[in-house]
Simulated scan of single mutants.
Amino acid sequence: MFTYLRRRLRNSALLLLMASVLCFGLVVAAPGNVAQLIAELRFPGASKAMVDQVAQELGLNDPVPVRYWHWLQGVVQGDFGVAYITGEDVGEAIRNRIPTTMKLILGGSIVTIVLSAAMGLIGAAWPGRFPDHIVRVLALLGASTPVFFGGAVLILIFAVNLRWLPSFGDSSILSWILPSIAMAAPSAAVLSRVLRIGISEAMTRPYALTARAKGFPVLHIMLRDALPNAVPAYVSALGNMIGSMTIGAIIVEPLFALHGIGELFVSGVRTRDFMVMQACLLTFVLYVSLVNLVADLLMIAADPKLRRQVA
């Protein structure tokens, strides 16, 4: 187990290094003159001399490998640089916004687990019947509805028309209900089908058929025998879904006026602030790597076969 964990940590470190190269390269390769944009924001109608001065101050005239090395040295020490546009410390800005994004992802994860488990168990308990058909339709709608559209519909119904819940800010726990549901809906739809299929396959195995022949209730067999065998695949898919919630955060946070890392990234893209964009992208990659590592460890803990393979 420790050998597996050490190997995974090594691979995660290599992945982060490669991701840092890609993040820096993609941002640097973006078209446009950053120095001119920043100079015009600072000094409207800036001359070429002012543009050259800004480029010199920001080190934009240095070769790309030198710029990357300087940036990477700062990142290792927790220094992501200074935002080009606002002059704010990027590392501090991310640290201040992490709690908001983590609350959103935590709320989305809880709603995802509850909804997917309920829908998957309902569909597996009544296969081919009316509840299964209803759950299948809901899963199809949830998986095919874009996050921004689902969030807008939730705001229109529950905040504008019914006025049950707030639609922006994080003033109370009620403020997190609509964003969490908007974040969780696509993931819960997909995971419900994963759980439903896993339980249905497990119910056709010899141990389940033997238990039914002995007269055990179907619900008892499903929960005691079939569900544990469907959990590893569910946990693996859940890890991927929670990891991909960073994409949902980029959409949900501006939609509900939540000041998290996703909203910071959107602001950086809008103003072409490369330092902010690079830091946010690398933070997302780090988060996904950690979530996938935890999901793999939980999957190993839930599956005896995998435990024997990594022992």
Rank of each mutant, 00 (worst) to 15 (best):
L9N: 05
N11A: 11
C23S: 07
G25F: 14
G45R: 03
R67L: 15
Y68C: 08
T86C: 14
T86S: 15
V90T: 05
T101A: 00
K103R: 12
I110L: 14
I113K: 08
V114R: 12
L121W: 02
G128C: 10
F130I: 09
P131A: 14
I134F: 11
T145C: 07
L156W: 15
N161W: 15
S167F: 10
D170W: 08
I173F: 05
I173D: 05
R196M: 10
I197G: 08
I199A: 04
E201V: 06
T204K: 08
R205K: 10
R205V: 06
L209N: 07
R212P: 07
G215Y: 08
I221K: 05
I221T: 08
L223G: 07
V231D: 04
P232V: 10
A233Q: 09
L238G: 03
N240A: 05
M241D: 02
M241P: 04
T246I: 10
L255P: 06
L258A: 04
G260L: 00
V266M: 09
G268T: 00
T271M: 05
Q278E: 09
L281A: 08
V288H: 03
N292L: 10
V294W: 13
D296T: 05
L297A: 09
A301G: 14
A302L: 14
A302H: 06
L306Q: 04
